[in-house]
Structure formats: C-alpha cells, structure tokens
C-alpha cells in the first residue's frame, strides 16, 4: 500500500441519496488504513432536492474544496450529476458512476430532456482515461436496500486498485463502522462492487 499516494476524489449525487454518508465512510476507511485524509462537504439549503457535492483528499492534500480540473476521480451516484460534475475531473482522470437515473423536476414534468446514457458516456470519454458505470440502485435493491447501492460504487473504486487501499480494507471498515443491522445488505453490495473488477 502506498499511503503517500496523493489523490483527489469528487463525489456528486442528489440530496437524500446518502452521498455525504458515503464520503464519510470512505474517509473513515482511509484513516483506518493509515492514509492522510481530508474530506469536505457542504450542508444546508442545497440539500432540499438539489445537487450534493463533496470531496475526499488522500495522501496529504489540505484544501477541503476542489475547483474544475482538480479531481483525479469522480464518484457519481447519479449519471446526470456525474456529467454535471465532469469539469472537476482532470484530463485523464477516472470516473465511477451509477447508471441509474433520477430525473430532476424539469425532466419529470417533460419540460427538459434527460441526456441518453450513450451521450453521457461519450462526453465522459472525452475527458476520462477510463470510466465505469454500474447499476447501483438496482444492485443495492438486490442486496437488500436501495441505499446500499452507494456501497457498490465504493467497493468498485476500492477494487479497481486506484486508491491507496483495497477492497479488503473497505470490507473491514464496513464491519467495524456500520451498525450491525445495515451490514448484511452492505456486505452483499460490496460483493457486487468487488466482482466488477474480479
């Protein structure tokens, strides 16, 4: 493990999805693995159905905020938000995203058009060196809880080898930090994420 590996991760999702909980969980995992960690969140008004962004910095970065072009990795919990967050990715960065759409109100009412998945993937491929799309909500539901879908994505990024710690450490952290009743669904979700890179 390279605990000094410097990495900046940008998280994005929709209010209520649990992306801040996911950020905090990965941050605790990093600390547990002995990696320097800083996470940044914004709480408050934006959460009323709006976009929720957060950042996780590994290996000694200090600034709890990212600008466009600074992220090495994007973790998107909703595909439209992944696309919206794309300017944060540095050229050649890596994207992990849910492929399960949650249409915003304008789309739900038929006033605006939600981009096609193929369109989203193509735009992301213009910037990212690799990108991975997982049906997180669907897999979460299959594992026993929609919210466990976030764990699918976290497990996948851990299993990809891009972080300074692997999926086994994440599994250990889940067992240590998650309440017992949430563990079965999340451990199952972790297996779905792990098997993506198996």
């Amino acid at each position: 493990m390279d605990a000094q590996k410097k990495l900046r991760i940008y998280f994005t999702g929709v209010g209520g999805q649990g992306s801040l909980t996911a950020t905090a969980l990965l941050a605790r995992t990093a600390l547990f693995a002995g990696v320097d960690v800083v996470a940044g969140e914004v709480h408050g008004m934006a959460q009323r159905g709006g976009v929720v962004e957060s950042v996780l910095l590994l290996g000694g970065w200090r600034s709890p905020k990212l600008e466009y072009g600074e992220a090495d990795v994007i973790l998107g919990f909703e595909p439209l938000e992944t696309l919206r967050g794309l300017p944060y990715l540095r050229k050649g960065g890596v994207v992990f995203s849910s492929s399960d759409a949650m249409p915003p109100v304008g789309v739900a009412l038929g006033l605006e058009r939600y981009p096609d998945m193929e369109e989203i993937k193509a735009k992301i491929a213009e910037v990212a060196s690799e990108s991975h799309f997982l049906p997180c909500r669907e897999l979460g539901a299959k594992a026993g809880a929609v919210q466990a879908g976030n764990t699918v994505l976290l497990a996948a990024v851990c299993a990809s080898g891009i972080l300074p710690f692997g999926v086994d450490v994440f599994e250990e952290a889940l067992k240590r930090f998650l309440p017992a009743k949430l563990q079965p669904a999340n451990l199952q979700a972790l297996e779905y994420g792990r098997s993506y890179f198996a």
């Binding site: 159905g49 794309l86 915003p104």
Partner: peptide
C-alpha cells in the same frame, strides 16, 4: 492556466420545497 471544460447545459436540479 489549466484547461477547463466548460460545464454543459444540463437540466437543472434547483432546491425546492419538499
């Protein structure tokens, strides 16, 4: 200056009364 891709015009997700 880092090259930054302009944000795309996308459907907005404004905060709203629940």
């Amino acid at each position: 200056k880092p090259q930054v891709q302009a944000p795309a015009q996308l459907p907005k997700r404004p905060p709203n009364l629940c």
